[in-house]
Structures are given as structure tokens and as C-alpha cells.
């Protein structure tokens, strides 16, 4: 079930094409990572989903309905550049922003109290935003983003500016929000958080979608058939005598008769054959496939794109 359908969205600015017929689909109740280098078109796309700007062509559907102004109340957006009214009091400001999203004042106040209790920031209610540290302001901003209980959440670099402890709190909250039914679009450069949190990712560059799919599938798709083995009690030297189809990429002799090696298989051979072959050499301690991480795929894809141009 797709929650967001983006179909052939194009957006051109005066002298460059920010989005060129981009189509994406975000499954319901998942965390969707939107990846891409700076200037790829992520912010343009996010702004279009938020109806801050309109696309030149293409359509967007949210839960089967064409995107329209009423959906603003169902979207929560945490921009990369955070901002609050500095001179305004925390509670007053959160109430104001919640009301702008269409939440009734009394309900907003109740929900805010729950969130403030949860983050243990109740004592900030009557303090001015400018009196708070940057990390504190980020917490407020996060609360303000989710206060209207949106069905779609868009986080642009949500972890920048947080210390590791607060990053963990935030991750838990994001996972909990998904649990409660929200669909989350997550735009970031931080690849480790992508692998940890995202169910699906899309990679865009220069206004084009390069790949899209679940993290698992993509990793499979970009597997290089490389294995890492760890052997002890090695009798003969490993390397010169590998059968056809297997290539030794690296070998590390650690200690007495102990070897860690990475071996790549050609697509037509079975990985299990390698295992059988290795048994003759010594004791196999560990054996695992080296799947590419998202970071590598990201860099590889962007570089191959740049080469093409």
C-alpha cells in the first residue's frame, strides 16, 4: 500500500532543472530515506510535497487523493534549517504553531503537555526560545513538528545538532511514530542512520531518481559476491591455488597460521564451492558475505553518474 505517490514531477528554476520527471512511491507506515548529494533536488521535492512551491508538471497523491491544501494539516515538516521565534515563549509558540496546523487550542495544550513531560522539558514552558541552547531548541522544534499528529512526517537532517544521547531519544521517537501509523520521509546525508532506520530508500542526483527500493533489496542488487573468511591452522599458503572463478582480493596474516581473506566470486560460480575448497586449507572460524553498505552504493552511484555526464 503506497501512501505517497509522486508521478513525473518536474520543477525548473530560472537556469536549472531541479527535478526532472521524478516518480517515487512511499509505502505506508514505513521510514523512507530520501538520499542525494547537495543540490540534488531533495529540498525542492520536499517543498513541493509541503505545498510551499508548486511543481511545473506532474502529480502527487497522498493516500490515494490528489495533494491539495487541506493536506497541510496531515503533514509535519522539520526543515533542515531550524527556526523558531526567538523572542516568543516556548509554550506560547508551540501552541501558536499547532493552531496554525489546525489543532484546537485546548487539544494542542493537552498534547503539548504530554510531549513536554516525555522529553522532561516542562520547566521550559515559560522561557523564551532565545534563552535555550541549540539542542533544547531542536527538541522544541521536533515537538512542534509532530504536535498535530500528522500522517506524513518529513524530517530533513533530523539528527544534525543533537548530541548522541538525544539522537537515540529521537530515533526511538521516530520508530514509535511509525509504530503509531505515521509514514516518514527522511532526508539525510547520514548513511549510518539510513541503514539503521529506513525501510525504503531513494537516491536522487541532479534532479533524477537513480534508484529506489527497500534497503534489503538494494543491498542484494548491489552485492559484489565478495566474502570474508577467517581461517586458523592454515597449512598451505592461500592465494596462488584458488580455483577458476575465485579471486583473492586481500589477505591478512594475523598471528601464527591465522589468515583473514576477502575473496570475490564470479557470478557463475556457487559460493558454497568456495566453502568446500577452503576446508582443505584449514579451520574455518567465520565466513560471511560482504554486502555493500548504503554509503558505498551512494558514492558509487553518484560517481558513475558524474562520469556519464
Amino acid at each position: 500500500m503506497q501512501f505517497i505517490q509522486i508521478q513525473d514531477v518536474t520543477k525548473a528554476y530560472a537556469n536549472h532543472l531541479a527535478l526532472d520527471k521524478v516518480s517515487l512511491s512511499v509505502p505506508k507506515q514505513t521510514i523512507y530515506g530520501l538520499l542525494g548529494p547537495n543540490g540534488a533536488g531533495k529540498t525542492s521535492l520536499i517543498r513541493i510535497i509541503n505545498q510551499i512551491t508548486a511543481p511545473d508538471s506532474g502529480e502527487i497523491f497522498i493516500d490515494g487523493e490528489k495533494l491539495q491544501p487541506k493536506h497541510i494539516a496531515q503533514i509535519g515538516y522539520l526543515p533542515e534549517e531550524r527556526g523558531l521565534y526567538k523572542k516568543m515563549k516556548v509554550g506560547e509558540q508551540a501552541l501558536y504553531l499547532a493552531q496554525l496546523k489546525g489543532v484546537d487550542k485546548i487539544i494542542a495544550e493537552k498534547r503539548l503537555k504530554v510531549w513536554f513531560e516525555r522529553f522532561e522539558i516542562m520547566s521550559w514552558w515559560n522561557r523564551k526560545v532565545e534563552e535555550l541552547s541549540k539542542g533544547m531548541q531542536q527538541k522544541i522544534q521536533f515537538v512542534v513538528t509532530v504536535i498535530h499528529e500528522p500522517r506524513l512526517l518529513i524530517f530533513d537532517e533530523p539528527f544534525s545538532g543533537f548530541d548522541p544521547i538525544n539522537v537515540n531519544i529521537l530515533k526511538e521517537e521516530i520508530l514509535r511514530l511509525r509504530q503509531e501509523g505515521a509514514t516518514i520521509i527522511f532526508s539525510t546525508h547520514n548513511m549510518s542512520s539510513v541503514e539503521e532506520l529506513c525501510d525504503t530508500i531513494a537516491l536522487i542526483n541532479n534532479g533524477n531518481k537513480i534508484l529506489e527500493g527497500s534497503v534489503k533489496e538494494i543491498k542484494q542488487q548491489y552485492r559484489t559476491n565478495t566474502y570474508e573468511v577467517h581461517l586458523t591452522s592454515v597449512a598451505t599458503a592461500l592465494g596462488d591455488s584458488l580455483p577458476n572463478g575465485f579471486h583473492l582480493l586481500s589477505k591478512l596474516v594475523t598471528g601464527y597460521n591465522e589468515v583473514t581473506a576477502t575473496i570475490q566470486c564470479d557470478p557463475y560460480v556457487k559460493a558454497n564451492d568456495l566453502l568446500g575448497f577452503l576446508m582443505d586449507f584449514g579451520q574455518i572460524v567465520s565466513y560471511r558475505e560482504l554486502l555493500p553498505n548504503v554509503h558505498d552504493i551512494f558514492i558509487q552511484q553518484i560517481e558513475s553518474q558524474t562520469d556519464k555526464n
Partner: peptide, 10 residues
């Protein structure tokens, strides 16, 4: 203060 982007999303 960059509040503007939050505002125009509402």
C-alpha cells in the same frame, strides 16, 4: 530566524 519555512508549510 528560519522560522519562515515552518510557517509556509502551515
Amino acid at each position: 530566524s528560519r522560522i519562515i519555512e515552518v510557517m509556509v508549510s502551515s
